[in-house]
């Protein structure tokens, strides 16, 4: 029932944040499509992780935080995000730093245009590198639902790719 001391908890949590924040921020960015929204999402998730630190093992912290991110805030966020998503994706013709940024934006926008379940599955499978079973466990859905969402999500991304000159998923 009781966890580590506050000093130990703080030290462990600080180490965890140092190693996990960028992967978590990028995952949240892929899910939300906005850097600021991603930052809010991860900050809130990390705060909850801190509160729960006494009852989760340090090697579970990443999975625990990811679970919070994908299950607790996306719905709320997406209600506002939907207003800014467009179906027309920008061209990505320049292979420079700007070009990379454009492609990233295009990718993130394409993800944002996916239905939420598909977006979560694609990001967890292909960015967080989770297995189907792990994705199913994290989202609380069946493996069949993961397969279906992944298949449809990838198909939709490819369709977006075909609508751009260089597009995604070359």
């Amino acid at each position: 029932m009781f966890g580590p001391s506050k000093a130990t908890r703080d030290a462990e949590f600080t180490a965890f944040v140092a190693s996990a924040q960028q992967p978590l921020l990028r995952m949240a960015y892929a899910l939300t499509g906005e850097a600021e929204a991603a930052r809010d999402l991860v900050q809130e998730a990390l705060t909850k992780t801190y509160v729960a630190w006494g009852r989760i093992r340090s090697d579970e912290a990443m999975a625990y935080t990811r679970r919070i991110i994908v299950n607790q805030r996306i719905d709320t966020w997406r209600k506002t995000r939907k207003e800014t998503v467009t179906d027309t994706l920008p061209d990505t013709a320049v292979d420079s730093r700007e070009g990379v940024a454009d492609r990233r934006d295009t990718l993130v926008r394409a993800l944002a245009a996916l239905p939420e379940q598909q977006r979560k599955v694609v990001v967890l499978r292909h960015y967080a590198d989770m297995s189907e079973a792990h994705v199913a466990d994290t989202l609380g859905i069946s493996r069949g639902a993961v397969k279906s969402a992944a298949s449809r999500g990838l198909a939709a991304l490819r369709q977006h790719a075909s609508s751009t000159e260089e597009g995604l998923l070359r």
Partner: peptide, 15 residues
Amino acid sequence: AVQDQLHTELSYADL
């Protein structure tokens, strides 16, 4: 291909 692209292009994200 999706995995590569997500990792590559998100790695440049300025977060």
